[in-house]
Amino acid sequence: MLKKILGSIGLAVLLPLGCLAQISEGTKQSIATGKGLNVPRSGVFWTSPTEQPGVIGDFYIDSLWRDGDVKLVKPVAQIGGLESDTIAGVEIRYNVLNDELEVLADKAKKDIRVIRGSQLKSFKTNNGLGEVEYVNLASFDPNGEAKGFGAVLASGKITFARVYKTKITKPNYNPGFGTGEKNTVVRLTTDYYLLSGSGVQKISLSKKSLLAAMADKKQEVEQYLKESNPDLKDEAQVASLIQFYNSK
């Protein structure tokens, strides 16, 4: 409990203004609908969640608040003046559309703060079935240009991740006929990536794509495929293949 209290206090006080540097898709949507930019509250370095008027659909990897830990790109001052790149024991959820990690700073007051995705290296949550780590693709990109967060399915020399993206459908309402959708509709989609020190590589769950990505151990991988005959459309079985590759 003490850890959670201290973490929540830290949320309200000390985070750099750099967390507000990038404009998210949700904020752009707010600008387009006349809501303007979302600005920091007085006296704190955290913003409130970006408003999304006229936008409906799926925004969160998991819409429920989950206990989690956060790893920041750079250390920041915490309680007592010490610097740390970790905030532990807080309730969080990730908004894919806005690229914002929402933090429940005070449940009773419904006080929600956010950390911009550009300031996050990774975060972990427990979804009730076990702990899941989400990593920032930019951390694996030498140019830091890759976007999005992925759930780690296998890790080691290469990391296999399910990465979440948004598919946005613009309004197509026809007032003359009274048909179509008046709102912007958001849906989540997923892609698969291999992450390593050499960069970020999007893959398909197919033998051809996977063999190309693991060409340096092609013989061992082909032998594994022959003996195990995994279903390469099943991400769990692909994760086992990646773990095999990482063990060699």
Rank of each mutant, 00 (worst) to 15 (best):
K147I: 09
G148M: 08
G148I: 05
G148Y: 05
F149W: 06
F149N: 12
F149T: 15
G150F: 01
A151W: 08
A151D: 13
A151R: 15
A151T: 12
A151E: 15
A151C: 13
V152L: 02
V152I: 03
V152T: 00
V152Q: 07
L153W: 07
L153M: 14
L153V: 10
A154H: 10
A154I: 04
S155P: 10
S155N: 13
G156Y: 03
G156V: 03
G156R: 05
G156L: 06
G156Q: 06
K157G: 14
K157Q: 15
I158Q: 11
I158M: 10
I158D: 03
I158T: 10
I158N: 05
T159N: 12
F160Y: 13
F160R: 03
F160M: 02
F160S: 05
F160G: 04
A161I: 09
A161T: 14
A161Q: 07
R162W: 02
R162F: 06
V163T: 11
V163Q: 04
V163E: 02
V163N: 04
V163Y: 03
Y164P: 06
Y164K: 06
Y164W: 12
Y164D: 02
Y164G: 09
K165D: 14
K165F: 12
K165C: 08
K165V: 13
K165G: 14
K165R: 12
K165I: 09
K165T: 14
T166C: 15
T166K: 13
T166W: 01
T166V: 15
K167H: 14
K167S: 15
I168T: 04
I168G: 11
I168R: 11
I168C: 07
I168N: 09
I168H: 07
I168S: 08
T169V: 06
T169E: 13
T169H: 05
K170G: 04
K170M: 12
P171M: 00
P171G: 05
P171H: 02
P171N: 00
P171C: 02
P171Y: 02
N172G: 10
N172I: 11
N172C: 10
N172S: 12
Y173P: 10
Y173L: 05
N174V: 07
N174A: 06
P175T: 05
P175W: 01
P175N: 03
P175Q: 04
P175E: 07
P175G: 02
G176L: 14
G176A: 11
G176D: 13
F177G: 02
F177W: 02
F177S: 08
F177I: 00
G178S: 04
G178Y: 01
G178V: 09
G178C: 08
G178P: 12
T179Y: 01
T179Q: 07
T179D: 01
G180N: 04
G180M: 07
G180K: 07
G180E: 06
G180V: 09
E181G: 08
E181Q: 11
E181T: 14
E181S: 08
K182Q: 05
K182W: 04
N183Y: 11
N183I: 02
T184G: 11
T184F: 10
T184N: 12
T184R: 14
T184Q: 13
T184M: 13
